[in-house]
Computed example of a mutant assay.
Amino acid sequence: MNLLEHAAKSLVLTPAGIATLKSRLCTTAEEAAAGVAALGPAMIKAQVPAGKRGKAGGIRPANTSEDAESVARDILSMSIDGHRVGSVLVEQRAAIAREFYAAVLCDPVRRGPVVLFSPEGGVEIEATAAHSPARLRRHEVDVLHGFARDDAEQLVGGIDLGNVHDAVIDALLRLYDAFIGNDAELVEINPLAELTDGRIVALDAKFTLDDAAAFRQPALAAAAATEPATELEQRGSAAGLKFLQFDGNVGVLANGAGLTMTTMDVIRHFGGRPANFLEIGGEAYTKAEAALALVLDNPGVKSLVVNFCGAFARTDVMAAGVVRAWQQLRPKVPVFFSIHGTGEDEAIRLVRDQLGIEPFDLMEDAIQAAVEAAS
């Protein structure tokens, strides 16, 4: 779950004691004009869960109320990376001396937090990592030890921070505390700015909440930005199916979220692109026709993998649902089955007799065949 900039600042950074600039959230051009009248020269910033807002024209200066009204009206008419701009943050402008980058995120390889810092803030951090990897510092945190002042000092060691050294250290410590205390997957400040008056201020903020911890963070979960759903995703939700649409060409039908994700990973391993996430298991086998229609109505799908692995759920029952749906819909795309587990003999015989298709012995063989067929 992602928070928009204004929510990340007010609900995460400010309670953690990290300074931000005065601002107002506005949903109309007239409100933005009033905001600049109250705050003075400001930046008008589109509030969408997307990066590179500045490059898209979603962050612009306004010196007067008239400027603000015109700029805000333009930004509020925009869509950025598929997200319609519904509000803007009118934020007081400040004189910047230097910009830094600071973040704490979960490292999926180490399965623990990593604190990042760079003296090159205000730019795409991927570019810094690519052309000057030594300029992006990282500290891998032992969660039993935590992130202490000595760790922060080591992280910024050798970087001339001048008079703001202690303030930067303090911001890093507070950022880590905010990460842990709010069950975050990511908390990022880019830029963390040194102003000409000597203050250290967060000029932007990103925050991602661990979905599994939403019940512990109801205020953050309630403030999370909603992702725009595609027409097929809306259909899936209405049918009670967990369906996500992607831009790939290999359709996926599997039982259980873990097996579905594994299937998608193997598709990528063989150079393919999954077209969707859709698990069909448990009681969902009764919705096989709706599920199959969702996958096939994705215009990019050129082949389909059906991957069943039964333990408590019986594969023959799931296969029966898919076979009935296949006979009803009569799709033209090639389909490749992998069936293992409880009821597999009956399931394989059913697919062979009813559809004239021979399931593969190995999952990876079925998936590789689907990738080749799609390409």
Results as ranks from 00 to 15, higher is better:
82 G>T: 12
82 G>D: 10
82 G>Y: 03
83 H>W: 06
84 R>T: 14
87 S>N: 09
87 S>F: 08
89 L>H: 08
90 V>W: 07
91 E>H: 02
91 E>V: 13
92 Q>H: 11
93 R>S: 15
95 A>F: 04
95 A>Q: 15
95 A>C: 12
95 A>S: 15
96 I>A: 09
98 R>W: 04
99 E>I: 07
100 F>P: 06
100 F>D: 12
101 Y>L: 13
101 Y>R: 11
102 A>W: 02
103 A>P: 06
103 A>W: 04
109 V>P: 00
110 R>A: 13
110 R>F: 02
111 R>E: 03
112 G>W: 02
113 P>D: 08
114 V>T: 09
114 V>I: 11
115 V>E: 03
115 V>K: 01
116 L>R: 04
116 L>A: 15
116 L>Y: 03
117 F>Y: 08
118 S>N: 10
119 P>F: 03
119 P>G: 06
120 E>K: 08
120 E>R: 06
120 E>I: 14
120 E>C: 05
121 G>T: 10
121 G>K: 00
122 G>V: 08
122 G>C: 08
123 V>Q: 07
124 E>D: 15
124 E>S: 12
125 I>D: 07
127 A>N: 13
128 T>N: 01
129 A>N: 07
130 A>C: 00
130 A>D: 06
134 A>E: 15
136 L>D: 05
141 V>N: 05
143 V>S: 12
145 H>V: 04
145 H>R: 12
147 F>P: 02
149 R>E: 15
150 D>G: 09
150 D>R: 14
152 A>E: 04
152 A>W: 00
153 E>A: 13
155 L>P: 03
156 V>R: 00
156 V>I: 15
158 G>R: 05
159 I>P: 01
159 I>C: 08
160 D>R: 15
160 D>V: 09
161 L>S: 13
162 G>D: 11
162 G>V: 12
165 H>E: 14
165 H>L: 14
166 D>H: 04
166 D>A: 15
168 V>W: 06
168 V>K: 03
168 V>C: 10
168 V>S: 06
168 V>R: 00
169 I>N: 04
170 D>G: 06
172 L>C: 10
172 L>A: 12
173 L>W: 03
175 L>K: 02
175 L>R: 02
176 Y>T: 09
176 Y>S: 09
176 Y>F: 15
179 F>S: 07
179 F>K: 01
180 I>Q: 14
181 G>P: 12
182 N>M: 08
183 D>G: 01
185 E>F: 04
185 E>V: 07
187 V>Y: 00
188 E>I: 05
188 E>N: 11
189 I>V: 15
189 I>N: 10
190 N>Q: 14
191 P>K: 11
191 P>Y: 12
192 L>M: 13
193 A>V: 13
193 A>H: 04
193 A>P: 08
195 L>G: 05
196 T>N: 11
196 T>V: 12
197 D>F: 05
198 G>A: 12
199 R>K: 13
201 V>Q: 09
201 V>C: 09
201 V>I: 15
201 V>A: 07
202 A>Y: 04
204 D>I: 06
205 A>W: 01
206 K>V: 01
206 K>R: 14
206 K>N: 10
207 F>K: 03
208 T>V: 11
208 T>C: 03
209 L>W: 03
210 D>R: 04
210 D>Q: 02
211 D>H: 00
212 A>E: 10
212 A>W: 01
